[in-house]
Write a protein that binds this DNA or RNA. Structure first.
Lengths: 200, 200
DNA sequence: TTTTGGTTACACAGACCTGTGTACTTAGGC
DNA sequence: GCCTAAGTACACAGGTCTGTGTAACCAAAA
């Protein structure tokens, strides 16, 4: 149906380019001139679509705020797959940490709008974990969900400075221990020594 | 011996002020003018002590790079106390995340000098955990140490955006589970239900 | 007293930034 | 053909930033 050549609206082209530059080099580091030049449009056109740089920053962050799409796989698998996905993203050379954390870090506490969307994003991620844990019947899903997001954000921060995808694997191992400790069957029981229950 | 009134060297005064402003408001957000004005010195004086802003940034980060002082307490206690200390720092209103992570986030990947010192700091923290774990005779101290720093950095990132000191408590709980899983006696066994082994 | 080193006040160059003003072009719909 | 909407080119105002140049000042050492 849709033509093969991308019929992007101008607004979308601006957002795409702003995303790339803001994320890779920092929001303060990139001026609107740079974004316009990268697309090959005039600065005037950019300002016809966004009233100010701040509005562009907000739109950039809102565009980054995507909900994880539902998956048919079992919840425990989904949770652990999160860390595999992280590892893949770490391995990509254009990964540069969490855009929300970075934005709060470089824009400072004064920017309430940015902080608000960052909080919303973090909370939505935590709720996603909590819902999966509730599906698993975990007793204190709230607390465990928080612990899991700590592992996610910790591995992101560590990878940001170290460029080491193994941080995602370490997080996954820790998550596995936490899940098992909460009574979740995460498969691959390494040493089935004591219980030796039948698989069915 | 030393006079009660602080006999600070000019360099130290500059660094102290730069630290406060860089950390609280961001490195890019603060100009050298602002720092000089805050101390009440001329910009010329500042440039007589530091050849460039970059040099000041480097000195700021190096000054932040302090080793944890050795403590006589048992290693497991020291490890868990890390998270209590974090919680106290989170509760302070002037906490704004990890200065090294923030610097890398806002200065971008091009700044090799900043990245280098950030990596060194993160690794030194990891090694501190590893050494305590080795004292405890933990089998895979390397892996567990990495997992613990994930919890530290994760709680820092979460607190940065959410301003919630409870993140440190969540990290401590997760750390407790991980330590116990590695065979470390962390005290306060909550539910001695199944094993019911004699304490000695 | 003279010298010297650190400091100040202040101007300034050169760069970059956000945001606006204005006149011109171009393409599509009527 | 004409009108409108969108984009372009380009200048520019007004601000901030880093870093330098210069002359005067002041206190302590020689």
């Amino acid at each position: 149906m849709a033509p093969p050549t991308t019929p992007q609206t101008m607004k979308e082209r601006i957002l795409k380019t702003a995303d790339k530059l803001f994320y890779l080099q920092g929001i303060r580091a990139i001026g609107v001139d740079t974004i316009a030049a990268e697309i090959g449009i005039s600065k005037r056109t950019l300002y016809n679509h966004f009233p100010s740089k701040n509005a562009l920053i907000a739109a950039y962050l809102e565009r980054r705020f995507v909900q994880p799409r539902p998956s048919g796989r079992p919840p425990a698998e989904q949770i652990l797959a999160t860390f595999d996905s992280l590892e893949r993203r770490f391995a990509a050379k254009d990964f540069r940490g969490c855009p929300f954390v970075n934005a709060v870090a470089e824009l400072g506490p004064a920017d309430r709008a940015v902080k608000k969307i960052a909080i919303a994003f973090k909370e939505s991620r935590r709720l996603w974990f909590r819902d999966r844990l509730n599906e698993l019947g975990v007793a204190d899903a709230e607390a465990l969900a928080t612990q899991l997001v700590l592992l996610v954000d910790g591995s992101i921060a560590q990878d940001l400075v170290r460029d080491d995808p193994a941080m995602a694997r370490a997080a996954k191992q820790a998550a596995t221990v936490l899940l098992r400790n909460a009574g979740v069957d995460v498969g691959g029981e390494v040493k089935p020594v004591k219980g030796k229950r039948a698989p069915q």
